[in-house]
Design a protein around this nucleic acid. Sequence first.
RNA 1: GGGCGCGUAGCUCAGUGGGAGAGCGCUCGCUUCACACGCGAGAGGUCGCUGGUUCGAAACCAGCCGUGCCCACCA
Length: 851
Amino acid sequence: MDEAQRQRLEETTRYDSSEVEGRIFDEWMEGGYFHPEADGSPEENFSVAIPPPNVTGVLHMGHALNGSMQDALVRMNRMRGRNTLWILGTDHAGIATQAVVEKDLRKEGKSRHDLGREAFVERVWEWKAEYGSRIVEQYKRLGASCDYERERFTLDEGYVKAVYRVFKQLFDKGYIYRDNYMVNWDPGSHSAISDLEVENREVEDVLYSIDYPVEGSEEVLTVATVRPETMLADTAVAVNPDDERYGHLVGEHVVLPLVGRRIPIIADEHVDIEFGTGALKITPGHDPNDFEIGRKHGLEEIGVIGPDGRMTEEAGKYAGLTAPEAQKAVVEALRTEGRLRAEEPYAHSVPFSHRSGERIEPLISLQWFCRMDELARPAIEAVERDEIHITPSQWKRVYLDWMSEIRPWCISRQLWWGHRIPVWYCDACEETIVAESTPKRCGACGGELRQEEDVLDTWFSSAIWPFATLGWPEDTPELRAFYPTSFLTTAREILFLWVARMIMTGLEFPGAIPFRAVYVHSVIQARDGRRMSKSLGTGIDPLEEIDVHGADALRFGLLAMSSTQDVRFSDAKVQQGRDLANKLWNASRLILLNTAEVEAAPRPSAVEDRWILSRLERTIASVTEKLEAYDFAHAVQEAYSFFWRDLCDWYLEIAKPRLYDGEEEVSATLLYTLERVLALLHPTMPFVTEEIWSFHPSHRGHLAVHAFPRAEESFFDEAAEADVEGGIRLTQRLRAWRDLAGVPAGAKLAAVIDGVEPPSFVSRLSRVEFDGIGAEPVASVGPVRVLDSDQLDASAVAERLENRRAELQAEVQRGERKLGNEGFVAKAPADVVEEERGKLERYRTELAELS
RNA sequence: GGGCGCGUAGCUCAGUGGGAGAGCGCUCGCUUCACACGCGAGAGGUCGCUGGUUCGAAACCAGCCGUGCCCACCA
């Protein structure tokens, strides 16, 4: 520490994160600490693939929490000397990004169709170049020690190669196929989406009962529906085969009102006899259940609603109306014809697009699918056998349950931004070619080729993130050094969407699990318990928190508030983090500005030195263990408690006289303790610890690459802990006694010791002199007999005495009752009984002394 | 409909078989020479309800009430 540094330390009584963080981050980058060479094996190295944020995204609280957790483990392992890679990148986020750019275009009064595909995609790339690095910069603000030199993007040239290789191989294996099938059509993004991108919401609809006349009979079949407009596409009415009411009608026909089409009455066990009238209209073209039933019975599939959400030509006179308009018109027409038997409010859950928020329109369309069952099998085994360990453990069950019922995945999207599906069609000979790079002409007939228009689901490319980012399918040094990665932290909402798929592709392609452990973290809710969301206005911006309180404060706060269950965002915890950073700074000032010029080393010369070293090493052991078990909340709170309570409140106060005397032993011990505390806290609070480290006499390189402490068990010292903690308790009791007896804060009390001499600090910290003479004892606090003086308020002392007596009597009663219970004495473990006896003895003795 | 959670101090949360904890807030007292983003001392809880198991339950079991999330094709 030079003169300038000393001066800065002396003058700065408050830690200012905003002055420090940018500077420190630059130093780390210049040091190149986050950019490892691709050496060594995955077993000895440590690597993490960041869940790639959307390129359109801005850092939200989920990223901040997830990043804080990953960085804590990444930094700890880097400090342990492991070759550590935290790979970062962004996801092209097909729908989201396309939507952003289309919105821009609309402001210019244009649509993507005005530009044409090529120009539009070009435009998205321009947008990406300008805004795509925003979130990466925001991760830097958090202090995330990612390898920013290896940043990847899911549409990088190399990444596209990986995606195409995967597509081709899955196609060749027969897993990927094209089919006319019912899909979730999202009218908002104008694309099919997968089952996982659909969310069900409770909706108040109207349930309409409609009479369908039975052909050649006076009977009617009444069906119930919330979507009467789809009746235009009905191709059957189904009843349960066991339904005695309708047995005679199966095989007959009804005449579809408004349409006049003759449709059969069929029997299918899917129909619930109890629901409504027990007759179900079948619309294979617009309902997933009806679709299944229709395929089973070979029914015609009619589509009356088009991809634009409007009625098609098939809908006859309703063509051109939107579905809701058609619904109104159909209901009106049915009413006029007297076919509408009933309408009643009906609450049920309805699928909505997770992307656009619009109500899903089930449609039959020609899409690409991927069969998942074969891919799932090894992915199930890997988790069952704990080759991939999921924490908290209940998510293992959830994962396995979902995987065991996995269904085909619709992987095509009717978008322009994304990986265009590597399939080419020859119109001349109807050949379909799947290739990893663009073929020139049709291999069969030499004809012109036309590429599939659709792109792949964004999650198809994120599914290969852990190995595609390392250069697969090439055999790169990165892949050899860092795959499989060490662990993955994630929000549970993408357990299926992403995590499960990475496991499947990892096992299928590189042939190994993508990570050894998965940690599912809590969701941080808004302060009021609602979910944080932009649309609700409940979001809390992590960058604002960083601006105001510092990245360290936010990181500490998020880790401290995290849990295995969802938690509400706690400003208090962030503030606790900020206070901790400030306290670290000031405790360090006390130490660094007052220690003698000695080497940092454990040099205990008093019982309190042995105590603090014991507590330090125990804390290191415990915090490390908790970090490794992903128990971040307890890890940081335990470190906090050791530093603030043990080190600052007690040890520093006890050690001050020796420190000011320039004693070498205490200086060495303090510098040693500080060094280890800084290193221990660095993974969670990297900035403030790095900044303080630059003033520490042991400082050589940066703390980011300094050794992480390993607990020295030889310093564990139960005897010293018992002595000092006894002294602490006595000090606290004396202080409390003074306070309650009305003694002025600054006054010194006279007393004598009756019994074992307490540790020497007790007298100073409690402001009680133990060499009093003359006056009469007026009270006992443990072994201390407080002597009478004019500092004492006689009535307060008497009251205090009376209160204590009452307390003790209650305690004695409790003990006697417990030990008088024969069952307890006979059945409780001996040590528990012994402890009870000891306590009772002590309380009786003290009570006797008071009388 | 199935599954998984949660209900502990005013607030946010720990605690999983032997006398209720933390942070914040609150009260009282401190310009004590690192820090008022501080120091010292306090108040505050029949651990959702009812039964059960146990010598002993906040914790284990059952039921109920309240609440959240995930999955699911009853129109």
